[in-house]
Write a protein that binds this DNA or RNA. Structure first.
Lengths: 114, 114
DNA sequence: ATAATATGCAACCAAATGGTTGTACATGAC
DNA sequence: GTCATGTACAACCATTTGGTTGCATATTAT
């Protein structure tokens, strides 16, 4: 059931992409509704090319897909990649839990019966 | 039940911290067993201060804690922060799901009965 | 006391990041 | 055809990032 067939480089790209407030906001918007780049750009104080660059970062991380539609590029969020990221984080939790289990086992060894 | 009382700056720090291979590896190791900085540093080709800096980044994101113990600093992973990050990601999924629900509702409206 | 170990921290450097402006091109509207 | 809109992309700039070396300090071991 472990699916994270991602390279370390891909993981880098996903977390780097999510490590920016504007990009997280773009992800939120594109998850809630598809929008063109200029529609998205209206919501931020920065220039249009700046927003374009953020979208390029998100696309490189496969968090978002750019779909040509006439002269527009429709941006759609990709929930599968978010799922992958969640799996990565839950992997850390598994490690933690197995550590706790090992510590519990050690304690049980020290006190055969109380 | 929504707990993510994190500022955007804190979220930035968490994802930026996780966006580096060495730092993810340090998190894995400190989740599986506490180690000193020099123990951790032995596993990487880079210099000791470089590893120190990575740990400082992780500590600023509250992903690990530095516990002074004699002349050593024991590094312990903090699973609560990983949990927060997971909650943030699952928030995206919720947005996605409610979007799908809205689309389904629209379709149902278009076809009152089939 | 001296030596070895573990850490802290400053100064420096190259590369990446996040922004800008300017220009070019494709598509849709009139 | 002309004009407006939407996007692409290059060049530039300041700041951040991820690494280095060198030196100082604290703690443990002999």
């Amino acid at each position: 059931m472990v699916v994270h067939d991602l390279t370390e480089e891909e993981i880098d790209r996903i977390f780097k992409a999510l490590a920016d407030r504007t990009r997280r906001d773009i992800v939120r918007r594109t998850f809630s509704a598809e929008s063109s780049i200029s529609e998205l750009a209206q919501h931020y104080k920065m220039s249009f090319p700046a927003v374009q660059k953020h979208i390029a970062v998100l696309e490189a991380a496969d968090l978002v897909t750019r779909i040509p539609q006439g002269r527009e590029r429709i941006i759609r969020g990709n929930p599968a990649t978010i799922r992958r990221a969640q799996e990565l984080l839950s992997h850390f939790e598994h490690i933690w839990r197995s550590r706790i289990d090992r510590l519990d086992a050690l304690l049980a060894e020290d006190e055969p019966q109380t």
